[in-house]
Design a protein around this nucleic acid. Structure first.
Lengths: 104, 104
DNA sequence: TGAACATATGATAATATATTCATATGAAAA
DNA sequence: TTTTCATATGAATATATTATCATATGTTCA
């Protein structure tokens, strides 16, 4: 019997559309935007990030995990610290595009 | 007396960071992504959009308003219909960047 | 004018999300 | 091996967001 046609919107499957929305969710919170933007100048540990963005450690840690899950940042341990850095070239572009929009 | 120093993160003010997050919120929902993506090929009325993305009229109308408030789309009335179209060149770029990310 | 069609809106309920607090884990230094 | 510093995590609360339902508004045409 014929399978029910899968929903697509001009080639994009439902799954991809949901993934796309999930990706943009990562940029849709000011704490996460601050973290990403803060990492524009390179690797930083959690304490540094907390100071830069003026948020407490737990909140930052939760958001770092979300960003890491979304593969927007990566981490490596260095002694007691964990160093975080951007893991995707598109991050800067996406944020820059956003900035251009709001600056109009 | 000295004013308390306003929070900025490398030149971006708190206000701008919030605006940036608000902008990306518009892309952070699959209904809105579908609408934007649907409008890639040009102007459409509400009924068409509803059919294309398979969502009911009220939900679509609510989201159209959000997108319009964010200045991502614009509208004009044509008889009984209201035609919507993209109102920002960055929209396509932002979504394309997102697609590239998830396709990796 | 009043049907019929197209779109918008307000209120509500369901769901998702973020921050905080308390505490756990992990690494280094005393 | 205990203390200290750095980070992660779970639970709970508070807040935000979305879809739905009912209905209102606006437009055309008979």
């Amino acid at each position: 019997m014929p399978k029910k046609k899968e929903y697509t919107l001009k080639g994009l499957r439902e799954r991809e559309l949901l993934d796309l929305a999930d990706l943009f969710k990562m940029f849709a919170d000011s704490t996460r935007i601050k973290i990403l933007y803060d990492l524009f100048d390179g690797e930083k540990n959690v304490t540094e990030i907390c100071e830069d963005i003026e948020m407490n450690q737990s909140a930052v840690s939760h958001q770092l995990r979300a960003l890491k899950t979304a593969k927007l940042i990566k981490s490596r341990r260095e002694g007691k610290s964990v160093m975080y850095s951007l893991d995707d070239d598109h991050v800067k572009t996406i944020i820059e595009m956003g900035k251009e929009h709001i600056e109009e």
